[in-house]
Design a protein around this nucleic acid. Structure first.
Length: 484
DNA sequence: ATGTTC
């Protein structure tokens, strides 16, 4: 019997795999996908979302979002929320690139304002924002400073001259998540992090200069201060080798911990520890430290973007209105209060979002005051050369997905398959014909990141919008792309 | 995603 025969349609774009599917399942799995998404869903991802449903202390549902695909242990595009009292934390539920995320900056510039400078701007952005595998930042961080970066995040960056204090107001966790502790980050992770701070990385990480192409919701756009035709900048990056090392270090520790605490898990890649254990607490502190590193990283990149615009256009970043729209983490686990039962009682949960974006609705204290009336901005990056989207969080997301939605396009071709299928030259030509400047360190990376290697992001956000787990606000299209 | 197989 095909696995898919166990998927029951609950409602338009909502599917459920009952907890009877696997003996160990504690809750059902829920998939938020359109028909096409269900048809194309890999069996491996179905196994993974149902495996997560077997973990101790999981609440309500193991969730798969519109961009769900196969990952390490947990699916990417997955959410698992665990009771703080009897639940677990699993590094596989956060991912290797801890606090991979997206930051968006707005401006008062138009496409015409940029036109005379487009080539120079492309070259200088590429030069000033280091990118590529193993790329190094252009600052020399002292070894003792890394602890401060890990503990203070974007606040460290602002205190050291990177960007503006008011930026912090518009970052998830204000760019500094509490309970981070560099003491439990290995020397190896610090050593990898020191030279890489202030670099973009590789793969699907990018820096884009975009224009606001379409507004779907005038009221929300006004609240987010996004105007049709204006230029925006998007940074998609994470915690580099530092976060990767933290994940590796703690996967090894968790592999021992789940045996020590006699946790019955269906897949070793779901290695985890009870939240009240020392192993879990140390991982959380280290993971938060890596998250802070990523917020500092994006803060520095934005600072150099502003400097580059100032250099090329000869105006100040303030005069160009280059303020922060928002910054979201899409690989993180956080303690949050949610209503789980019909009795309306609030519970403290550890919500793992892996390749999932927080989409908190109106009124939540975590949403910046300026946006609280409409809900938080949800930034969903597209693939190179395609559109990216701004949505807003909703009450429906709070009720159904622990305040979460998708995080991007989702890969459909493996890197190796994409390299065989596409050539860098044809991609560059294709983008240029659409008026998009692209500059990358490596041709293979361009082929790996070909738009054809990814699920259509338009479908992903459309499904989210239809479901109401984040509603469309604006579409932005790229003018300049730089990547690893 | 990643010093792309410590």
């Amino acid at each position: 019997m095909s696995i898919k025969e166990n998927i029951n349609k609950i409602d338009e774009n909502i599917w459920e795999i009952p907890s009877s599917y696997k003996k160990q399942m504690k809750v059902p799995a829920r998939l938020y996908l359109n028909e096409e998404g269900i048809e194309n869903l890999e069996e491996g991802a179905i196994e993974q979302v149902t495996n997560v449903a077997c973990l101790p202390g999981i609440q309500k549902f193991s969730l798969g979002l519109p961009d769900i695909h196969f990952g390490y242990g947990f699916p990417i595009g997955g959410v698992g929320a665990f009771n703080m009292n009897n639940g677990v934390v699993s590094p596989g539920g956060v991912g290797f690139d801890i606090n991979c995320g997206v930051r968006m900056i707005r401006s008062n510039l138009s496409e015409d304002d940029l036109k005379p400078y487009i080539t120079e701007l492309t070259e200088k952005l590429f030069k000033n924002i280091p990118s590529g595998v193993g790329s190094k930042g252009k600052i020399k961080l002292l070894p003792k400073e890394i602890d401060e970066v890990l503990n203070k995040g974007a606040e460290w960056a602002v205190n050291n001259g990177y960007g503006w204090k008011e930026d912090l107001k518009f970052l998830e966790e204000n760019g500094r998540i509490k309970n981070a502790d560099s003491e439990v980050v290995s020397d190896k992770a610090k050593k990898r992090g020191i030279p890489q701070l202030g670099s973009l990385g590789s793969g699907n990480h990018f820096l884009e200069v975009q224009k606001v192409d379409e507004i779907y919701n005038e009221k929300a756009a006004k609240i987010f201060k996004l105007k049709k035709g204006t230029i925006t900048i998007m940074v998609h990056s994470g915690s580099r080798g530092c976060g990767h090392q933290v994940c590796s270090d703690y996967l090894r520790k968790m592999d021992k911990a789940y045996k020590k605490y006699k946790l019955n898990i269906p897949d070793r890649q779901l290695a985890c520890a009870p939240l009240d254990s020392e192993e879990a607490q140390d991982y959380l502190k280290a993971m938060y430290a890596a998250a802070n590193y990523a917020w500092a990283n994006r803060q520095m990149i934005v600072h150099w973007v502003r400097e580059t615009f100032e250099d090329v256009l000869g105006k100040s970043a303030k005069d160009m209105g280059m303020t922060t729209v928002y910054d979201v983490a899409h690989n993180i686990a956080k303690e949050e209060t949610h209503i789980v039962n019909k009795n309306g009682m609030k519970l403290n949960l550890l919500v793992h979002r892996k390749g999932a974006t927080r989409a908190f609705g109106p009124g939540r204290s975590e949403v910046p005051e300026d946006y609280r009336e409409i809900g938080q901005p949800v930034l969903i990056p597209g693939t190179m050369g395609t559109s990216s989207y701004v949505l807003h969080g909703t009450e429906i997301a709070m009720e159904n997905t622990f305040g979460s939605t998708a995080h991007g396009a989702g890969r459909i071709l493996s890197r190796s398959k994409a390299k065989k299928e596409f050539s860098a030259d044809e991609i560059k030509e294709n983008l240029l014909s659409k008026g998009i400047q692209v500059k990358a360190n490596s041709d293979p990376v361009l082929a790996e990141e070909a738009p054809g290697a990814y699920k259509n992001v338009d479908q992903v956000v459309k499904t989210s919008d239809k479901l109401g787990i984040a509603k469309l606000v604006a579409k932005v299209t790229p003018l300049i792309v730089t990547k690893g």
